[in-house]
Write a protein that binds this DNA or RNA. Structure first.
Length: 482
RNA sequence: GCAUUCGUAGCUCAAUUGGAUAGAGCACCUGACUACGGAUCAGGAGGUUUGGGGUUCGAAUCCCUACGAGUGCACCA
């Protein structure tokens, strides 16, 4: 029993002894620093049942505690707050206990059948058509942090990442590379693979917009122009080829994605992030259909006349939701149902956490509701760690307007700023360090600053990113606190 | 329109989840140091917690309402 529990039960005994009254659980809170004491017991709630003024109750209980226990040394009462000071002997006991436990601060693996509880945390989840940006960094640091916290709390944590490596957006980069690439490679261009592909994604968008504008100028209305522009048709064609496993398309797809992965890996390495398992959507996007079939049999889903399959979630305050198209193909939610099941099977994960932006709040509500309806054993242990977008002082980040803050650039800038500031502050004291040691030091300082800056705001809220402040070494920043 | 998240000092954020006098940093003001309109140190000012109602011993926190901002409401992912 720890001190807090001892005091709590002592208070219960005190109330019984003094007032012949049984009270429920006693909640203690740490005493505010401007008052004497360690723990505080609030007596206001007792005034009704005990029919006495709050301060009086405090006095009575406090006196009883000093008299009858050896944990409590002294007390004082301010209105309805009973501040309790703990005896030195009791602290001594706590300290010796801590000293005897080498793993103090971490909790032992806990669980029902002796095995540690396992939890899966999914984060980062990038697309393979452009490099990581500031938003990803908030996501990644959040995911990494909860993983560490859970590990310290005795969970067996599996960090996963699901890569969105297929679809129209990927085909856009692929097509642009095919048309304008002229065999350029990361080596020949000296660019990181993910940045190189990002360049072609932007190039596609430019060429496509120009084409649409041209058509509009020639008299086509905007909507049809967007749909029928030759470049868009070529992209659709490429997607069909990919789905039919066309060898040539797959070779290109593999080559470009490979460059992007190499780029991502470099970034992850710099910031010290690793994953236990990476899922690829190209391998999971067909999952989930069996679950729908099974659910149909149980009457959880229903089929409309046009053969599409739906679920009615109006009881949960949500809408009717399509889970299978009329042609039998799956949608986003179908795929997520399948992937969740797959992750459960792969890791036996009792719990799953998704670190995903708050624009997907509704999607996860629906996903969890469906899994509950299906009676999946893990359905009550799913959590969407939702976080707000990151704004710049100039406004929102927009990839179209080119106002995104690139992750690699940002990391480099932060490290540079750290090195400049550290050099300045140390005034030559760093000379005794080797170049390698210095680089490591600056990297540590810079990344620490960046992490702290992105994590100090409540995840739920939108936050504003101020480049100058993020690399500042004073004030409420990582380096200063260190 | 419906759903959902949010609104705290001039700015960016806290507040141990319903507790005591709502706290930090930046910016600002005063003083010290001084070859500086810089750096550092000491101090100060700054608030009807968006407005209004309610719940209770007690509300920034819970409920209702108005206003303001973000996001979502695809047979895209």
């Amino acid at each position: 029993m720890n001190i807090q529990e001892e005091v709590s039960s002592a208070i219960q005994q005190a109330v019984t002894a003094l007032y012949q009254h049984e009270i429920g659980d006693v909640v203690l809170q740490p005493t505010k620093k401007e008052f004497e004491g360690t723990y505080t017991f609030v007596t206001f709630p007792l005034t009704k049942t005990l029919r006495q003024a709050p301060a009086q109750i405090g006095q009575a209980i406090g006196a009883w505690l000093v008299e009858n226990t050896d944990v409590v040394r002294a007390f004082n009462v301010v209105q309805g707050f009973l501040n309790i000071s703990i005896a030195d002997a009791a602290w001594l006991k706590v300290l010796t206990n801590i000293a005897a436990k080498p793993a103090f601060g971490t909790f032992p693996s806990q669980n029902r059948d002796g095995k540690p509880k396992s939890v899966m945390v999914e984060f980062s989840s990038p697309n393979t058509n452009k490099p990581l940006h500031l938003g990803h960094l908030r996501n990644i640091f959040l995911g990494d942090s909860v993983s560490r916290i859970l590990t310290a709390n005795g969970y067996n944590v599996a960090k996963t990442c699901i890569v969105n490596d297929r679809g129209v957006h990927i085909c856009k980069s692929m097509l642009a590379y095919q048309l304008f690439g002229e065999g350029e490679t990361p080596e020949s261009s000296g660019m990181k693979g993910d940045h190189l592909i990002g360049k072609y994604y932007v190039l596609f968008d430019k060429a496509y917009k120009a084409q649409v504008e041209e058509m509009v100028a020639a008299g086509t209305d905007k909507e049809t122009a967007e749909k029928t522009a030759p470049l868009m048709q070529q992209v659709q064609q490429m997607l069909r080829m990919w789905e039919q496993n066309d060898p040539e398309t797959l070779v290109l797809w593999n080559k470009l994605n490979g460059w992007v992965y190499a780029g991502f890996d470099a970034t992850y390495r710099t910031i010290g992030i690793t994953f236990d398992k990476i899922y690829y959507e190209s391998q999971t996007y067909l999952l989930g259909k069996e679950i729908i079939e099974a659910g149909l049999q149980q009457g959880i889903f229903y089929r409309k006349d046009d053969n599409s399959v739906w679920i009615d979630l109006t009881e949960e305050g949500l809408d009717q939701k399509l889970v299978l198209r009329a042609d039998g193909t799956s949608v986003y939610i179908t795929q997520d149902l399948g992937t969740t099941e797959l992750k459960y099977e792969d890791f036996g994960a009792d719990r799953q956490i998704w670190v995903v932006g708050n624009e997907q709040d509704y999607h996860f509500n629906v996903l969890f509701s469906i899994l509950r309806r299906l009676g999946r054993p893990y359905a009550s242990e799913l959590f969407h760690l939702s976080y707000g977008m990151v704004d710049l002082p100039t406004g929102k980040m927009m990839s179209r307007e080119g106002t995104v803050v690139d992750a690699d650039d940002l990391i480099q800038e932060t490290i540079d700023a750290a090195s400049a500031a550290a050099d300045d502050a140390a005034k030559g004291k760093l000379d005794e360090f080797s170049e390698k040691e210095k680089t490591e030091l600056f990297q540590m300082l810079g990344l620490g600053a960046l992490k702290y800056y992105l994590l100090k705001v409540d995840p739920q809220k939108r936050m504003q990113f101020n480049p100058a402040e993020s690399v500042d070494l004073h004030g409420n920043t990582g380096p200063y606190i260190k």
